[in-house]
Design a protein around this nucleic acid. Structure first.
Length: 567
RNA sequence: GCCCCCAUAGCUCAGCUGGAUAGAGCAGCGGACUUCUAAUCCGCAGGUCCCAGGUUCGAAUCCUGGUGGGGGUGCCA
């Protein structure tokens, strides 16, 4: 939208509307909308500019719309078929075939860069996206899966819109929970019962089996070895899910002294805070004045026992990220951490950070639901699968992937806004995987690939003499033009689900075109092949930004198990 | 008690920095397979956008107050 680099056909249209408004001698009180109306009868694009100008011009909106229509007609020339005034003062613009053909030419000319923002464009930021960061005391479960899908897609989209993105996983390899893991592993190694507050999952036994000396080893050492093995498993799970990180950041390292006897990064963060007078001693503990930045109470950094709190680690970690030169920090946290936001924001400000530079996104819970028929009544009931690492009962990322596949899992987890709790019906995802919208989108992509394999003409976005575009063709061109803004919007709002919606709508728009407009053998085959090819490219790009594959072939037999052959 | 998130079709959810007749998928009903792959398409039905006020030309959207659900609220991590 505000990309000064490449102006798209829609940008040009918007500029023409603004110039027309200026020609009337007034500037709109806010930026006019230029949107594709839901109804075809409302034109290709509609603007509310006249309603925004009415006040300044002291004229009824519909009168202003009439004058604006004349001015826009002058600006657009042959590109404008007609403009209609509607409702309270909307101006509905009907654009000509020539405009659409030129727009498609632009899309094709942009190639791989279509919709992308160049890295040297203004507004580029250095962004650190920290996500998943699940404790290495068990496998990644469903909550972590949502976090992984969301963070990965967000990182991909932010990169696409021109930012320098660094992906990071914060490993909580420090503190009492690690000891607990060690104790649990050791107990298993000895064939003893796991402590009541220990970790009960079967993976604990697996870890124990992989550590020969676990039974009699030093607890601290066993703990660290167990953590190392867990991290390895977590990495493998995420990698299989298509999620990779640039940095696995150890919490433990924050507490270790720096090179040449320099203070630890935790101590360094304490020093930074102390210099600014943000800390104080009370009853033997070190406190941070988070209340000065809106927190409800001050927080302890160092207990009277001398131990550092988790909060101290997190502050040191964020100070470290600041010192690494990022202009923006985005953390994706699980819902169970949301009570922690206020104090983290406060701490970030206490360190000297600007309030808006740290974004904390809370990933609401995913409830895994399974259906079961009641044996007595036969009525179907849904039950929530409980997720607790301690109890060893949860649905893991690995299980989710093996049940419904990477593509469907990512689609499901990304299709909904991160701040709403969601139900994921495993039975539905399993039994109806072929009905899943993700397959619909992939099928559209594969179908285009098939058509283009069959077509023998060279795609060329030129409309043959005497041929008029079908409404479905114009709609598809317009849908393609909406790609860049859709990615920018999804990235800017940190809302990957908006891109999911876009991709689904594009597939639907294509399918309507496919229904209405034969390609192979048609008089306009070259144009339609060009249009289909551009659609294929945008679908593939959009799916890639979501971490979902774009197969060139799909076969019904593979429906239940979308394996490598289908990808 | 206080803080955060949510409430839209039978179900799961989009739409939320105000725009025209509130959408999608699934489920339901009725149709279409000599195909550019029917993993599809067409049609029908389905709604007090939780409630009550307010802001204005216009509110699912913004504001206030409620109701209901979820989560958080430790010198735990």
């Amino acid at each position: 939208m505000d990309d000064a680099h490449a102006s798209t056909p829609v940008d040009d249209l918007r500029a023409a509307v603004l110039r027309a408004a200026a020609a009337l001698g007034a500037t709109p009180k806010s930026a006019p909308t230029l949107e594709r109306p839901k109804q075809a009868s409302h034109g290709d694009y509609a603007t509310n500019a006249a309603m925004l100008l009415a006040g300044a011009l002291k004229a009824p909106p519909r009168d202003v719309a009439a004058r604006l229509a004349d001015a826009i007609a002058v600006e657009l020339g042959d590109d404008l078929d007609r403009a209609e005034i509607a409702g309270p003062g909307f101006l509905n613009l009907f654009l000509g075939d020539g405009w659409h053909a030129r727009a498609l030419t632009d899309v094709l000319a942009a190639g791989d860069d279509f919709g992308r923002v160049a890295p040297d464009a203004p507004g580029r930021e250095r962004i650190n996206v920290e996500f998943v960061s699940a404790n290495p005391t068990g496998p990644v479960h469903v909550g972590g899966s949502r976090n992984a899908a969301h963070g990965d897609a967000l990182a991909r989209m932010l990169t696409f819109v021109g930012h320098d993105v660094h992906r990071e996983y914060y490993v909580n390899d420090f503190g009492s929970q690690i000891v607990k893991l060690g104790e649990s592993v050791q107990a298993r190694a000895r064939g003893e019962a796991i402590p009541e507050d220990g970790y009960q999952g079967a993976y604990v036994q697996e870890i124990a089996d992989q550590l020969p000396g676990a039974a009699d080893g030093d607890l601290a050492e066993v703990s660290q070895q167990a953590v190392a093995l867990m991290i390895k498993r977590v990495k493998a799970s995420l990698s299989a899910f298509g999620v990779e990180f640039d940095t696995w950041f150890s919490e433990k390292s924050l507490h270790e002294p720096g090179p040449d006897g320099a203070p630890s990064r935790v101590q360094h963060a304490f020093d930074v805070l102390a210099e600014q007078g943000r800390t104080y001693r009370h009853e033997g503990a070190l406190w941070l004045r988070t209340t000065e930045f809106g927190d409800e109470k001050d927080r302890v950094l160092e207990r009277s026992s001398g131990e550092h709190t988790y909060f101290a680690s997190d502050i040191a970690y964020h100070q470290d990220k600041r010192e690494r030169g990022y202009t923006r920090l985005i953390d994706l946290w699980g819902a169970d951490h949301h009570g922690y936001m206020q104090r983290m924001h406060a701490a970030y400000e206490a360190l000297g950070g600007a309030p808006g530079d740290l974004e904390l996104l809370i990933m609401q819970f995913v409830h895994i639901v399974e259906r079961a028929a009641d044996e007595e009544t036969g009525a179907e009931e849904t039950t929530r699968v409980k997720m607790s690492k301690r109890a060893g009962e949860f649905v893991t990322l690995d299980e989710l992937v093996s049940e419904i596949g990477v593509d469907a899992a990512r689609w499901f987890l990304l299709a909904r806004s991160h701040d709403t709790t969601m139900d994921l019906d495993l039975d539905l995802a399993r039994s109806e995987s072929a009905e899943n919208p993700v397959y619909y989108v992939q099928y559209a992509h594969a179908r285009i690939a098939s058509i283009l394999r069959r077509s023998e003409v060279t795609p060329d976005p030129v409309i043959p003499e005497g041929v008029a575009l079908h409404a479905s063709e114009r709609a598809l061109v317009q849908a393609l033009l909406a790609f860049g803004p859709a990615v920018a919007d999804a990235a800017g709002r940190r809302a990957p689900h908006r891109l999911v919606t876009y991709v689904l709508e594009l597939a639907q728009t294509f399918t309507a075109f496919y229904r209405d407009c034969p390609i192979v053998g048609d008089e306009a085959e070259a144009f339609r092949a060009a249009l289909a090819g551009a659609t294929q490219h945008v679908l593939a790009t959009g799916l890639d930004l979501l971490g979902i594959s774009a197969p060139v072939e799909m076969h019904r037999e593979d429906a239940a198990v979308p394996g490598p052959a289908a990808r």
